[in-house]
């Protein structure tokens, strides 16, 4: 047997288990779901219903806005932290990084209940906002879009930080020094060098946080409450409460299509960023 053929066989053998699991547990049910969303006779009816109804379009818009907001919040909060951790000359940096991942260790349901306690009218977070005078005295964060963004950002922040940390660690510190000695202020050096070179990590972290946000269920439904009009929550309602399986299958297919197209766009951008940074 030729070496290349043997290598191909080995590669196929190594790929087989994951491919099998993926095909059996993801592609097969997804196909089933897709077929279910297109009942014979009126294959596009469910999609027309979704796309023709401003309520459902609003739900879709809400989910995309949620993904965008959570991504921005985690990026803005995560980048400085990841940068400081990556540049820290202390052996505690590893421990601090571990600390940032704490939210991931707690189940989504438990974490959401904790946020609910804070977000109810008498909760600490709502009280704090009331005391600023910016909101009415009976304001509560529970059931608001902002509340969902806060709760989701908290759990997804570590994912952003770890992704950015790894990328920033790989950027030679002397590149920033070089930029500064050439006359760039620290902020300009960060912008022209570090952020440009960290683009791949910024895109990867954003993609992870965005796709996890738009498909999140537990946090939006618990913290968002009855007024949580998000895709995953709507799918749940259609499936278990209204038993409209073809429609919920169509919503799921639309969500998947959006996630995949976002991922593909990001992949393209990511490829460009890598090409540049190499």
């Amino acid at each position: 047997m030729h070496a290349s053929a043997r290598r191909g066989l080995v590669a196929a053998g190594l790929l087989a288990p994951a491919a099998l699991v993926f095909a059996l547990l993801f592609i097969w049910p997804q196909l089933g779901l897709f077929l279910q969303s297109m009942p014979p006779g009126a294959p596009l009816a469910q999609y027309e219903r979704f796309l023709g109804d401003s309520y459902y379009l609003g739900v879709l818009g809400n989910s995309l806005l949620l993904g965008l907001c959570v991504t921005l919040v985690t990026l803005v909060l995560g980048f400085p932290l990841a940068f400081l951790l990556a540049r820290a000359e202390t052996r505690w940096a590893g421990l601090l990084l571990l600390l940032t991942s704490f939210p991931l260790w707690v189940s989504a349901v438990v974490r959401s209940f904790a946020w609910m306690v804070l977000f109810f009218r008498n909760g600490v977070a709502s009280r704090l906002l009331q005391s600023t005078g910016l909101v009415e005295s009976n304001f509560q964060l529970i059931g608001t879009f902002a509340g969902v963004v806060i709760a989701l950002a908290q759990v997804l922040l570590p994912i952003m930080i770890v992704t950015l940390y790894a990328v920033i660690r790989g950027i030679d510190r002397d590149l920033e020094h070089a930029a500064m000695s050439l006359g760039a202020s620290p902020v300009v050096a960060l912008w022209l060098v570090t952020i440009r070179l960290a683009r791949g990590g910024i895109l990867a972290g954003s993609l992870l946080v965005f796709s996890l946000s738009v498909s999140a269920f537990a946090t939006p439904s618990l913290v968002g409450g009855a007024r949580a009009h998000f895709m995953a929550v709507t799918i749940y309602e259609q499936t278990l409460e209204l038993l409209d399986w073809p429609f919920s299958a169509a919503i799921a297919a639309i969500l998947l299509a959006i996630s995949i197209s976002v991922a593909l766009t990001y992949g393209r951008l990511l490829g460009d960023a890598k090409e540049q940074a190499r």
Partner: peptide, 20 residues
């Protein structure tokens, strides 16, 4: 004084050329 105001030109051991 911060580095960017010092008027020094440094050549680094690793060269530190901007890869992008």
């Amino acid at each position: 004084m911060p580095p960017h105001r010092r008027d020094t030109g440094m050549v680094f051991q690793s060269y530190a050329l901007f890869p992008h």
